[in-house]
Amino acid sequence: MTSDQRVDVRKTYKLFIGGAFPRSESGRSYPVTGAEGGFLANAARASRKDVRDAVVAARKAFPGWSARTPYNRGQILYRIAEMLEGRRAQFVAELRDAGLGKGAAGAEVDAAVDRWVWYAGWADKLAAVAGNANPVAGPFFTFSTPEPTGVVGSVAPDGPLLDLVSALAPVIVSGNTAVVVASEPAPLPAITFAEVLATSDLPGGVVNLLTGRRAELAPWLAGHMDVNALDLTGVAETDVKPLAEAAAGNLKRVFRDPVRADAEDPGTARMQAFLEIKTVWHPVGV
């Protein structure tokens, strides 16, 4: 070792809960390896108690986030795109570590940025597209509007960045808050992405990211009675049944649909899956 070679400062990859970056309460971690099998870093291995804490943080953030104006949520989502774009080189490097080729890594970051931009524009259009006045047969004004369903638990697919973004953006754009179990094999970009979220004016707790073993964490998320909906997109088909059964405990909305990673228009199904329609009636008279 020569003295003129600088010793680099490495990042400790932690969880992202309530806007802070805590270690797992369990004190556990697991080694993450690159495409060549070499050691990249230790990622936090979240426990059921981290799931619990993340749900509490998400629930606490829900009233404030859902009450923001859609315009404001849209601005914050666009800010996320800006922050991501600004860190393009860092993400390309991390994605290359995770095994993507140079071109693929660049394309993945670009697509992730573009996806945030796409969803940012949806925030103040969703109610117009998913809601309407109801022409009822009586002296009443009645309208139906979409509202966020609440706390959404997501088990993200394996992809390191675009999959995560594709699962997350449609959840929070409408005012839901999220607890996301990141890609198990490639969790590091997710935590770096949390740094983007933390610097984008997104209120703490709106997104909570956990790294660790899906098989360990997903059942706690599925069974949690204060989680309103479950996105099982990152769960293998053979593993869905027990999780969906656990989700029946409080009748969570369960959604599972492959992320349309390459599509220019990802469609509205993922947003609509985490909406409730509220119908309000009021008499009309003098």
Binding site: V136, G138, F140, T142, E276, I277, K278, T279, V280, W281, H282, P283
Partner: peptide, 11 residues
């Protein structure tokens, strides 16, 4: 709640 009745109910 999925249905909110204001100044009416069970419509």
């Amino acid at each position: 709640a999925g249905v909110v009745w204001a100044n009416t109910f069970n419509k």
